[in-house]
Design a protein around this nucleic acid. Structure first.
Lengths: 198, 198
DNA sequence: GTCTATACGGTGATAGAC
DNA sequence: GTCTATCACCGTATAGAC
């Protein structure tokens, strides 16, 4: 019943794990090779260099990191509040399945801001525009759209990147923190309504 | 008028810069030596190894990162809202002077959670207790203290760790983002009152 | 495509003169 | 304390047999 996985894919999977765990400069080609169950020389045969391999992995993870919300945002049947709810729902679910993804993206981008070109970015302008329109229509309260989005996205991401610090400062064991993550969705959605509902 | 700075201090200053910029595994002893204007051998003369040097720098930066709020929190003349306001005021000011500090601490802690022992952590319990007391007294609205603190701290830190991603997604130039950071303090304080005031 | 062997530069760390 | 020279090792990358 084992699905046959190509060597190339085995390498990519292993590289993803190691780069996310160790970062670019902390990752070792040997470690990636071991995890993929192949020889170190094969890495270069398939991907030429560590840099090339990293670029591929990063672009792939970046695509995963950026919320795919075109269909939701453009669905005229949904109110802005419903759209934001759907966004939070989907995004927090994704992050719970990829808890180390945000730190990988954020720390890589901090040392290498130009890597952003590999991502699709129209998402931001749409949301700001939507918020401003609804404010004009008077269907939501007047807020600073950028401050609001900075808080909203931070509410989703920070629990994952700040986990070690936060759970140490507040002395939260694994189970207690998991509970917080579970309840986070409702909390963020309540925040949205509390801030935006007239 | 030049103040005389000891070699030891010059090394620490240089190491701080390089470690924050590059992380532990990305940092090079040669680069630290160059920046300190001394020879590579001197690093080992003063600090034995890269690990030792990093530990010292990390412990120092961690102390800086952890809010020092004992005096404010325990001041009986201040209401909880005033205490939180003072915290946000001081903490955001500190972060604006050390914008790369949060990413350094968070990413290091993610790969090395046990490093937390070097920090003083009573802060967390006090705040949670304060919040619960005020809820009992009915002076603030009923909230989940951990969710609230997670949001509050995230509101302060995320603008710095998420800056490259956020400013790319929302196409914010340097000046626009600086403005957001400037206005962040008021925004966070307004959030506190909005959530907690009965 | 996959392996072994190896080149080659860089990196942390030390020895020893001054 | 400060320097130069050097070591031992590790890391990426390549050559070449099969």
């Amino acid at each position: 019943m084992e699905t046959e996985i190509s060597t190339e894919q085995k390498i990519l999977d292993a590289a993803e794990e190691v780069f996310i765990e160790e970062g670019f400069s902390g990752a070792r080609m040997q470690q990636i090779a071991d995890k993929a169950g192949i020889n170190k020389a094969m890495l270069h045969y398939y991907f030429r260099s560590k840099d090339k391999l990293f670029e591929l992995v990063f672009a792939y993870k970046m695509k995963q990191f950026m919320p795919r919300v075109e269909s939701v945002l453009q669905n005229p049947a949904l109110s802005l509040l419903d759209k934001l709810d759907a966004f939070v729902e989907a995004y927090l679910d994704m992050l719970r399945h990829n808890p180390r993804l945000p730190m990988f993206i954020l720390s890589t981008m901090n040392r290498n801001p130009e890597l952003m070109k590999s991502a699709n970015i129209q998402f931001g302008k749409w949301i700001i525009q939507l918020i401003e329109e609804e404010i004009e229509k008077g269907t939501i309260k007047r807020v600073n759209p950028h401050q609001f989005m900075l808080t909203l996205i931070g509410m989703c991401i920070f629990p994952f990147v700040g986990r070690p610090v936060f759970s140490a400062v507040f002395e939260l064991k694994k189970e207690a923190y998991e509970l917080i993550l579970t309840e986070r969705k409702e909390h963020v959605q309540a925040y949205i309504r509390f801030i935006l509902e007239p």
